Simulated assay, not measured.
Amino acid sequence: MPFEDFTLWKYLATIVDILLVWFVIYKLINVIRGTKAVQLLKGIFVILLIRVLSEFFGLQTLSWMMHQVITYGFLAIIIIFQPELRRALEQLGRGKFFTRSSSPDDDDQEKTIEAIAKATDYMAKRRIGALISIERETGMSDYIETGISLNANISSELLINIFIPNTPLHDGAVILQKNNVAAAACYLPLSESPFISKELGTRHRAALGVSEVTDSITVIVSEETGNISLTKNGELHRNLTLDGFKELLSAELLINNKVKQASSTRWNWRGKSNG
């Protein structure tokens, strides 16, 4: 009887151990989601796949090469993933590692859209250059850290004041995170696409660049022409009217938010029904 109790406890401990490991992996994925580490992880997966296939087909030289890469790659992973590991440790220290992030509701999203549209209209009429990037599913912490932290409630007045020429924060991008102005004067990666028109400047290249590596939506106001543009998923929508801009922004933010809320509702319903 004591032996049976010990075996049962061993099984329970194994199950708890597996669940904890999966939970930690899930939280780590949330930390690196949307950063450059995602692409690097895909590369690691490819290397592991090549290693397995080379062993299976008896490709000894290739197998030896992959073995060396994996053996000495641990140190390289620590160096490459240093920003993500630092962020994970910071969140762990602040107690945020085990918290669940919530999506903004439609009312907050509509206020954000109105604030952006009002500020964009004001700056476009006066040819004030602006670059506003809106974080969505993928994280933009790497780029937020390059700017000046604000953590302020979003308003059209604040956005306008940030981009007034010759002010300390006007040069760079503003990043919005969960309907807050997370930071200003941020540096975004420039697109290296050869298909970008030569008449487009640094703001448009930065907007395209960040849309190529994240799912963010970025708004551009041209300083030369006052034209309004928007980038998403590596696509540039140029010379938008104010109504067209608001329609496109609403379609992306509100519809995406409703899809996430519907998915969350289904998950909660299943959880309650199973309980």
Rank of each mutant, 00 (worst) to 15 (best):
Q39I: 02
G201Y: 10
S211G: 06
S133H: 09
K198M: 15
I160A: 01
S54M: 10
L240T: 02
R266V: 15
E135S: 02
T225L: 09
Y72F: 15
T112Y: 11
H67G: 01
H67F: 14
L236R: 00
Y72H: 11
K272A: 09
S63K: 04
I220T: 10
T71R: 12
G139C: 04
K36W: 08
A37Q: 07
L249N: 02
E224D: 09
T71Y: 05
I113E: 03
Q82C: 05
L53V: 08
V24H: 07
L59K: 09
P83H: 00
L89M: 14
S156D: 11
K42G: 07
V16H: 02
T99V: 15
D243S: 11
A124I: 13
N268K: 06
S273A: 13
T71A: 06
T120M: 09
V259C: 07
R94K: 10
Y26T: 02
I154Y: 08
L158S: 01
H170F: 12
Y122K: 00
K232E: 07
T35F: 03
A185R: 03
V259D: 05
P104A: 15
A13F: 11
S197W: 06
G73T: 06
S216H: 07
L169R: 02
A76F: 08
E137M: 07
F45R: 11
A152G: 01
N153C: 06
D17E: 03
L242W: 04
E199K: 15
A130V: 04
D108T: 00
S264L: 11
D108N: 04
I79S: 01
E247D: 01
G209Y: 10
V38D: 08
D171A: 13
G226N: 05
T218R: 01
L249E: 03
S229Y: 08
M66E: 05
A37G: 11
K118D: 10
E157G: 03
T265I: 14
F98A: 13
D105T: 12
D106G: 01
I196C: 07
V21E: 11
F74L: 06
K272Y: 12
A37E: 01
V221E: 01
S211H: 05
V31H: 07
I154N: 02
F3L: 12
Q261I: 12
T265Q: 13
D121Q: 12
S229E: 09
L248K: 03
E137A: 08
T14Y: 00
